[in-house]
């Protein structure tokens, strides 16, 4: 029997600063990592502990895995101090990712906020890998200020292939695009809601208002996909920290449709 608690050693190959508080870490696990987009891993920072992250890289790249991390807790803080060549541990992948077949031939609306863009970048890489399977892909991304936008280099490249709308809560003189919370972007274009799915990831308050806005627009609860986040230790449905009602975010999620969770307590945190 395999011991699920043993991480595999991974070298930090590159550290990419995204914003003053967010970095992307390119990791090379000893034995590679196969995952489906939307699944998560447990990352060990030796001597500090473990924390769950959803890879922000393409699942078609298995020899390397990337995570985009905000410096916010004790594991992420130490990680932010680490450099190329340092060693971390990885175990996983865990949970259920995005059910891509459900998106085929549909208009896919991807809605991201702040560092919540991380799993969505992995999803976008996957969608772009075979764009013909999807009728249309629209990305709406919001951050607090222009300085808080992640993946700045990628956004122009994506604009050549899919529709991309960006907004910031507070603009400055350099900002040429929309100002306002990310949900206000949804008023700026038409979408065939009956043949559309929406995928949302961001801070809890953004997920909440984005979901309500999507429902107002006419999205059905089963067509709204949420990447839920909870404290997770084991990743395998035993430690019970990540429970929302009777569901385990680590096993039954982390991707849920709104219809799966709407009756459950405390979903927006």
């Amino acid at each position: 029997m395999v011991n699920p608690y043993l991480p595999q050693e991974s070298i930090i190959e590159e550290v990419i600063p995204e914003t003053p508080t967010i970095k992307t870490f390119v990791l090379r696990p000893e034995n590679g990592l196969k995952f489906s987009t939307g699944q998560f891993i447990e990352l060990t920072v030796p001597g500090v502990g473990e924390a769950p992250f959803t890879p922000s890289s393409s699942p078609f790249q298995t020899e390397k895995v990337e995570i985009t991390v905000m410096d916010v807790g004790h594991v992420t803080h130490r990680l932010h101090q680490m450099r190329e060549g340092d060693r971390v541990g990885i175990r996983g992948p865990y949970g259920r990712g995005y059910p891509l077949e459900e998106f085929y031939n549909k208009e896919v609306l991807v809605l991201g906020g702040g560092v919540g863009f991380a799993p969505l970048r992995s999803l976008l890489f996957t969608l772009l890998h075979d764009l013909s399977k999807y009728k249309r892909v629209v990305l709406c991304y919001g951050a607090k200020t222009p300085a808080d936008i992640v993946y700045k280099g990628l956004i122009p490249q994506w604009r050549e292939k899919i529709e991309v709308l960006c907004s910031v809560d507070r603009a400055d003189e350099t900002w040429k695009e929309h100002e306002g919370v990310v949900t206000t972007l949804l008023d700026k274009f038409e979408i065939d809601i009956k043949n559309s799915v929406a995928v949302v990831c961001g801070p809890p308050v953004m997920m909440k208002f984005a979901t309500f806005k999507l429902l107002d627009l006419g999205y059905r609860p089963e067509d709204i996909y949420l990447s839920m986040e909870r404290k997770m230790y084991c990743g395998i449905g035993q430690c019970r920290h990540c429970m929302i009602g009777g569901l385990f975010v680590c096993k039954d999620g982390p991707v849920f449709t709104y219809s799966q969770v709407k009756e459950l307590p405390d979903i927006w945190a």
Partner: peptide, 22 residues
């Protein structure tokens, strides 16, 4: 790495990095 008992009654049981607590 150690594993130890926890209780769902403790306020830190579900508290995430950054302080959000479901």
């Amino acid at each position: 790495r150690t594993r130890g008992w926890d209780s769902c009654l403790f306020s830190g049981f579900t508290r995430m990095a950054g302080g959000i607590n479901p």
